[in-house]
Every structure is written in structure tokens, then in C-alpha cells.
Design a protein around this nucleic acid. Structure first.
Lengths: 183, 183
DNA sequence: ACCTGAACACCGTTCAAGT
DNA sequence: ACCTGAACACCGTTCAAGT
């Protein structure tokens, strides 16, 4: 868990890049990496030295948000029954997806990276804990796993801006119902 | 419904472009438009004259496949109960999505274009007819519409190649269960 | 009316030179 | 060990010239 040592200037550049990216992702256009480098005041090569891919950068940009989602899962489970916790967590994810669309991409990327590492990762664990609580009470189908949830919730990513109000909640309810054990 | 008149050479070029694209989309790489033009033996400008956007081209490339899916809906409804028909149609879409991943993008684009035209379009009608049959019998939730289905089924698009066998069926079952009226 | 293909635009990515 | 930024690569898109 100890950070790899970096030269102070490298550390600073890295932080500048992430800060610039965090500000630029707010805009509706696709994030341009050269623009990030320019806004951060570093050369393009420096960006690539710190982040081997666009996705690595995005994971870093949304690290705190993803962490909050992970924390939320256990808090919700402590205070609600499994189905309500899952529903509330879904709503939480949706809010993020609505405001910061990139969060979802970061979540998906994280999960994918984690799986490639043969580890489930923190987001995967969060979703798994929600599902497991429901399975233990027999209210969630036994065969569903975290990646099923990620893939289905991903439908929200493709919502048009003007559809959220009418459609997002219903989509989540459909997914939630589909995940319930057929009593 | 009558075709707009085109010069014979234009018609031929158009057909060549679609044929070249149909062959090139088979490959795993992204479809490069310049490559399509080259393979079709026409200038790039000719491609743009016939298809204003990449999506327009893709809709044309998959026109027959989309039409087959539309036809399948009424055939299935004639021979099965609504839920089985919907399940069978889902499986059909999945097979297409697995073999020709682009079909799904074409379906989505068609639906989106149709909606922008304030018309539901043939694919939208096909899905609506499947849903309506189920609603009439009280086995499908009354608030679900064709676009919900498109968005949810779209989860399959993001499956990795090696996941299909283990995950595709389950995802479809989850969506199908979610679409059922809670008895 | 339609076609051609050189040229332009836009970005991601690399790498030689520098500190 | 790290940074810079010119240069390259890759594609989509346009448009002047041609039939």
C-alpha cells in the first residue's frame, strides 16, 4: 500500500494532470488528452509517462467518487434490508451517472481491470456484498453476480439527457425486479 | 415508397459501397470509411455523397438483418404465448448480436432515427407488439416500452467474447423477469 | 449529376533532445 | 529520473477539378 517513490516534480505534475482532467471532464465534449496536458501546463509526453492509457487517467480522476460508492454499500446494508439497500445503492449510482457520466465508465474500467488481475476489487466486493445479503435472505436470485449488475446498470449510460426523468427510475426497477428470486 | 431516381452509375457505386462495408464489418477492427471507399473502388467523396454519416451506412449494411428481426416478432407471437415469444425474440436478437455485433448498433440507430422522426419505426413496432401482447394478458408490466427493452438488451453489446456462454442467457432471463408484471 | 483523390483537420502517441 | 514539444500516424471529411 506504500506509494512508489517519485521525484517531487513528477508528483506535482501528476497531481496537476489529474486536476486538469477533473475540470475538463465536466464539459460535454470528449476529453482530449492533449488539451489535458496543455491545461495542466505539462508536455504531452509527461501525461503518457504517468498514465499509460486514457482509462488509467479516468480511473484516477474518479477515484474518490468510486470510493464513496464502495463505502455507501456497507452503510446502506447496515441500515436497510437487502432489497432496499440494493435499490438505494442503484439510485446512488444513477445520481452519479447523471451528474458525472464518466464515473460509470471509471467503475466499469475498474471492475474490468480488477477482473484481469484475478481479483474482484473494491467495487466488485461492494456489489457482491449487496447481492450476498439478498441471497442469504432468499430475496435475490442465487446466480446473479456483480458483473451482471454492472452490465445491466450500464443501460443508464446510454440515456439521453432529456430521458432521465421519465426513464431512469423505471429501468432501475426493472433490473431490480429481474434480480429478485422468483418467489 | 418509390425510390428516388439516381443515375445508373450512382446506383452501382452505392451498391458497391454497401457490399464492401458488409464485407469489412465482419472483421474485428473498427470499420474505416476510407478503407470501405477503397475496397468499393470509389473515391471517399462518393461515400459521403451516398451516406452522410457512418451510422447511415451501418443502417443500410444491416437492413436485411433488422428486417428479419421485425418479421420474427409477428411469427413468434402467432405461435407462442407472449412471454415465450418475447423470450424467443430476445434469444434471436442475442444470436445476431453475438455473430454480427453491428446489428445491434444498427437497431439502436434505427430506433433513435425513428424517434427523432416522431415515428416509432418498424423495430419499435415489433418490440411494442411483443410487449403489448404480454400486457394484454397481464404478464408484462404495463409501464415498459420498446426503448426500455432496447436499452436493457444493449447490455449484451458490452459482453466480452468469452463471456457469452456463461452470461448472455442469464442476463436475458434477468431482463425478462424484470419486465414481467409482479403477480 | 456525379465522381475522384489530394489535401486538410483533428488527435492520439512517440521520441530525440534537454534539464 | 523526468520533462518538453515537434513530429508522426491515423482517419474522418471536404472540395476543386474533372467527366
Amino acid at each position: 500500500m506504500t506509494r512508489p517513490r517519485r521525484r517531487a516534480d513528477a508528483e506535482l505534475n501528476r497531481a496537476r494532470i489529474v486536476a486538469a482532467a477533473r475540470s475538463l471532464v465536466q464539459q460535454p465534449d470528449e476529453l482530449r488528452l492533449n488539451e489535458v496536458a496543455k491545461a495542466a501546463g505539462v508536455g504531452q509526453g509527461t501525461l503518457y509517462r504517468h498514465f499509460a492509457s486514457r482509462e488509467e487517467l479516468l480511473v484516477e480522476v474518479y477515484r474518490d467518487d468510486v470510493h464513496e460508492l464502495v463505502e455507501a454499500a456497507s452503510v446502506l446494508l447496515a441500515h436497510h434490508d437487502p432489497l432496499s439497500a440494493l435499490a438505494a445503492w442503484f439510485r446512488r449510482v444513477t445520481e452519479y451517472a447523471r451528474i458525472k457520466r464518466g464515473v460509470f465508465a471509471a467503475v466499469t474500467t475498474s471492475v474490468r481491470t480488477d477482473l484481469a488481475d484475478h481479483s474482484i476489487g473494491s467495487i466488485g466486493e461492494a456489489i457482491t456484498s449487496l447481492l450476498d445479503a439478498g441471497k442469504a435472505e432468499g430475496v435475490i436470485r442465487g446466480d446473479a453476480d456483480a458483473r451482471d449488475v454492472i452490465l445491466l446498470i450500464g443501460a443508464l449510460t446510454r440515456l439521453d439527457d432529456d430521458e432521465w426523468d421519465t426513464r431512469a427510475d423505471r429501468l432501475l426497477r426493472i433490473v431490480l425486479d429481474g434480480l429478485r428470486a422468483n418467489e
